[in-house]
């Protein structure tokens, strides 16, 4: 049923460290690889080798430039996938019951055999976390790799979402955000983990760790060269000579 379940204690989700992400897109590839071969229909590509390729992805990495009031701009790589919201608007709008939030761990899933592909849940999501697969006509979204995290056929180290397992920089963390003692909850508390678009009241479970403040003024690599020009060598001589005219 598309009624939201009673608030559970367990809230599985991701914590993404924007200070660490290098924007390599390995999580995008690992996600597409795992999820196209496992739970649900494959993540199709349309016109993959043609002029206008496009495809279904459950995770995409944007890059933003942030300009502070003073100092140089910063580039921040920004992976984005389903935030498994506590008040998930994508769940309640679903007319068929295909879209649901699990009571036991808070994962938001789509029952693909009940999905009519109306697209309303994708409209209701502020984060662009849902994409209608153009080959199968059903809604695809991050499953938090539900077929990995409880999978006892996998070695224990692999029982995390594919994106977390593959991240070479350690920018992605997986855990129970409902347990204040968990490693992810402590990370969020320590680093001031934040919600995306909190004004829309979706209460995302996934948190983003903001980039750490710069602890020193940015280097000015041209300064020594300019100083050198003013004092020594041919450039210094020319500088002094030209100053006279």
């Amino acid at each position: 049923m598309t009624e939201l379940p009673p608030k559970g204690k367990k809230k599985l989700g991701l914590v993404i460290d924007l200070d660490i992400c290098v924007g390599c897109h390995a999580c995008v590839t690992a996600c597409k690889g795992w999820n196209t071969e496992n739970y649900g229909v494959p993540l199709s590509d349309m016109d993959a080798y043609g002029a206008e390729p496009s495809g279904t992805f459950l995770n995409r990495v944007h890059a933003f430039e942030v300009q502070p009031a003073t100092g140089p701009a910063q580039t921040i790589h920004f992976p984005k996938s389903c935030l498994h919201c506590e008040d998930a608007p994508c769940v309640t709008v679903c007319p068929t019951g295909a879209s649901y939030k699990r009571a036991e761990d808070g994962i938001v899933l789509v029952n693909e055999s009940a999905c009519i592909g109306c697209g309303l849940c994708a409209w209701a999501c502020p984060y662009g976390a849902r994409e209608l697969d153009q080959a199968a006509g059903v809604m695809k979204k991050c499953t938090l790799c539900v077929d990995r995290i409880y999978n006892e056929n996998l070695p224990e180290v692999d029982r995390v979402p594919a994106c977390v397992r593959t991240c070479p920089a350690g920018a992605r963390h997986f855990g129970d955000l409902g347990d204040s003692e968990s490693a992810v909850s402590q990370l969020v508390a320590e680093r001031g983990g934040m919600d995306l678009m909190p004004e829309l009241g979706t209460k995302p479970v996934n948190k983003y760790l903001p980039p750490r403040p710069k602890d020193r003024a940015p280097a000015k690599p041209l300064d020594p060269i300019i100083a050198d020009m003013q004092t020594t060598g041919l450039a210094g001589w020319l500088d002094r000579l030209l100053e006279k005219f």
Partner: peptide, 11 residues
Amino acid sequence: RAFTQWKTSWL
């Protein structure tokens, strides 16, 4: 199947 979720869904 769109007839099943009248409790929450306007559709």
